[in-house]
Design a protein around this nucleic acid. Structure first.
Lengths: 229, 229
DNA sequence: TGACTTCGTGTTAAAAATACACATTACTTC
DNA sequence: GAAGTAATGTGTATTTTTAACACGAAGTCA
């Protein structure tokens, strides 16, 4: 069915920058394009917004279709609207960034839509369209956000050690953090619940496992909380 | 000339939240709609994005057309895309917020496009569409931004006193700030240049005038500067 | 010249951030 | 089963930052 309008209209898409953390380095999820333009180039997952769905819904739908990921932390990033972003026609893209836990990664592998792969953020291939710019914007946003809001948990498995959390902060922010000071600060927010379990790995003392308290998180969020590191 | 597409497309608009400061209270610029829907309601200035212009350009063009304001500080805020924002059809709006100085206000009055008026942010009338939500988002963003980036200058005339700057911070943030501590902190950023002039008003000691140093501002911006108050 | 009003300034106490080192625990190996 | 290995977990002293607080100076007006 054709649709006709008085004036020429831009096409509207969403693109998602999905971050993951593998314990060592921050990763981003890219898909290989199967169609022109930029066929066989790596690109951010995304696609056209349908006329009856919200932008957030479009982002979630495209993510699930293209990567198999769902129920992840997702926030709008910025809208990219330069005139020649897409060689075919005027396309305006609402970019999102998403954070996901390693437990969900396996789901990502089982997609059949397109080839999807994690790349370390320090070494990503050339990207289609203006996706390199979108990616850079997302990374900057993540770095900024991490220092004052407790989003780091979204990148870790449900149970994690303080060392894992610290490694995450260090690799996203690219800095070294003192272990004692980091622990003091994180625990002072009273957002982590120590579990009875421990994490055993290697020939050394096991580490206390924690989980993140979503109830306290919601309470903090309502009063414009800070979570400074 | 008609344009036909395979799938139904959303219309794309920009809306602008323009803040001004009159020395006493933070103001926002609204226009009265001349056409349905929401005829005679107050609304944010804005309009359709043309297919050959960027989003930023559309925001600036609409602002000038509807309010006469140009060359102001303008940043993208958020994109609003719920399905029934507009009763006519699907409309996705890229919202911007803008800051302007009193000197430019007179220009705004001389518009012939539509009735445009400043309202104190503490007392705005019911707004058309979801513009109340857009406005609230913009105000929250401005408050957040003011505390760590030197955007306050954009709301003041080129020459201003420290008391004026403090009043601006106090009225945007809704807090009281200690005069001595405020001055110490602001001057410590080394971004203000004292002028040889003084501001005389009333039967009391005149105040030192300052201007803002755009060169140092650019330098700071490049290294992801902070301007904490 | 005295009253009035806003401008401009310095110090001290409290809180937060930073720097820094070693005993603990469990596994492995001999 | 004793010794070695490797990461965990913890406390204090110092520096820096923030917060609280009061009064003389400069100009106008009556």
């Amino acid at each position: 069915m054709k649709h006709t309008y008085e004036y020429s209209r831009a096409a509207l898409t969403v693109d998602c920058v999905v971050f993951g953390f593998d314990g060592g380095a921050l990763q981003v999820l890219l898909i290989r394009r199967g169609l022109a333009p930029f066929k066989d180039h790596w690109a951010l997952p995304g696609g056209f917004v349908r006329v009856e769905e919200t932008l957030d819904a479009a982002a979630r739908r495209e993510l699930e279709e293209e990567t198999g990921l769902k129920d992840l932390f997702l926030e709008q990033l910025y809208t990219f609207g330069t005139v020649n972003r897409d060689p075919r026609e005027r396309v305006v893209s609402v970019a999102y960034y998403a954070l996901t836990k390693p437990a969900d990664h396996t789901t990502a592998a089982s997609t059949d839509a397109a080839e999807a792969r994690w790349f370390p953020v320090s070494d990503i291939p050339p990207l289609a369209f203006d996706h390199a710019e979108i990616f850079a914007t997302a990374l900057a946003r993540l770095r900024g956000k991490l220092t004052y809001q407790p989003v780091g948990f979204e990148l870790l498995p449900p149970k994690f050690t303080l060392t894992q959390l610290q490694l995450l902060y260090e690799s996203v922010l690219g800095t070294h953090i003192d272990k004692r000071n980091f622990r003091k600060k994180v625990l002072s927010h009273d957002l982590l619940i120590p579990l009875k379990e421990q994490h055993r790995e290697g020939a050394h003392r096991p580490a206390q496992l924690f989980r993140f308290d979503p109830v306290k998180y919601e309470r903090l969020k309502k009063k414009g909380f800070l979570f400074e590191i």
